[in-house]
């Protein structure tokens, strides 16, 4: 059993890859390294935001932690136990405590089941969590908790709007009373007014149930709103990590700076000191990542050294770590030069 000082989730040097198959005979001709050497810790009751563009490996990271993908190597330690080592019933018991909220509220609910069936499916799979006689009452409780009308338990997903479906998805994730909830772009597909409702709901649920969130998103303002700590990923690697305050007031990695400056803000005139970094080009294919620092092909600071050696994730100040050969000191980063390549 984990002591109070131990993190609830600890990911160490995690690698996940997918085979690339040839069109002919489907032979494996190589591997895409979607997650390559990611480590972080997440304390109980906290929220860790994971940000990055598509292709950064953030979704694969989430799927590996929850067991939808098999890691190539590395450890996923949940509550003091290494998940890939567990087997059978033990693994199922551990997995019960990790649940996931999916991005697409339309695809994540089985269209053939009613909301009550969707939520209670978890209890059919894990007998003993909720006795069958209590299912109806428990479904109603959960629906009320996520802000839906409990009388709508017998309706089908298509009878709900996108935001309401996402609430059903949240209710399902809560059915097994998990300790860790992975939100994979859980609010990205929602209209902004509905997104704010769901964000508030997630915050309330965390306070009420003591949940721990791994919050994966590409929207930095949403991540800043909900997270305690943030991990920025680029092509399968962590490039910068720290607390929200550290990351958003003084980002030190060029990629984080670029991401932050690209976030559209409604009143740009009110923030005249915002950096204007418009990155050139796209994220390279994870099938053939650049040598050395993976960000160097889009980085305005890149030198010879960046192509030669991969920068390590180094602590710059009080847990604020970045992987860059030319780091700015966190204190100075605020006045970083305005760059427009």
């Amino acid at each position: 059993m984990a002591g109070p000082a131990d993190p609830l989730l600890s990911v160490r040097d995690l690698y996940t890859s997918f085979p690339i198959r040839s069109a002919f005979l489907r032979r494996e001709v190589g591997r895409v390294q979607a997650v390559s050497g990611v480590s972080f810790e997440l304390a109980a009751g906290r929220t860790l935001g994971v940000v990055g563009e598509s292709g950064s490996g953030k979704t694969t990271l989430a799927r590996t932690i929850i067991g939808l993908e098999r890691p190539e190597s590395g450890r996923v330690v949940f509550d003091g136990r290494d998940l890939p080592d567990l087997s059978g019933a033990e693994l199922r018991r551990a997995r019960r405590q990790i649940q996931m909220i999916f991005q697409d509220p339309y695809a994540a609910l089985n269209p053939r089941l009613t909301v009550a069936q969707i939520i209670s499916e978890a209890w059919a799979i894990h007998p003993g969590v909720v006795p069958r006689g209590r299912w109806t009452a428990e479904v109603k409780d959960l629906l009320a908790r996520v802000g839906l009308n409990p009388d709508h338990a017998d309706r089908y997903p298509h009878q709900f709007s996108g935001g309401q479906r996402q609430r059903v998805g949240i209710a399902r994730a809560l059915a097994l009373r998990p300790r860790l909830v992975i939100c994979d772009e859980a609010v990205s597909a929602l209209d902004v007014s509905v997104q704010a409702q769901v964000l508030n709901l997630l915050v309330d649920l965390q306070a009420d149930l003591g949940l721990t969130y791994l919050f994966i998103a590409h929207d930095l303002s949403v991540v800043r709103h909900i997270s305690d700590e943030v991990v920025v990923m680029y092509l399968g690697k962590v490039v910068e990590t720290g607390t929200v305050a550290q990351m958003f007031t003084a980002p030190v990695h060029p990629y984080t700076q670029a991401l932050l400056s690209a976030v559209p803000v409604p009143r740009p005139w009110a923030a005249p000191h915002r950096q204007q970094v418009v990155l050139a080009g796209d994220i390279p294919s994870p099938m053939s990542p650049p040598s050395g620092c993976r960000f160097r092909t889009r980085c305005w600071k890149a030198q010879q050294q960046c192509a030669a050696a991969e920068p390590a994730l180094v602590d710059r100040l009080a847990g604020h770590r970045s992987a860059c050969h030319f780091p700015e000191l966190p204190a100075r980063a605020r006045t970083a030069a305005v760059v427009r390549p």
């Binding site: 939808l68 499916e121 399902r172 097994l176």
Partner: peptide, 11 residues
Amino acid sequence: DFVDATRTLGA
């Protein structure tokens, strides 16, 4: 996704 969702329930 809904199959993955059921899978993550431990099915």
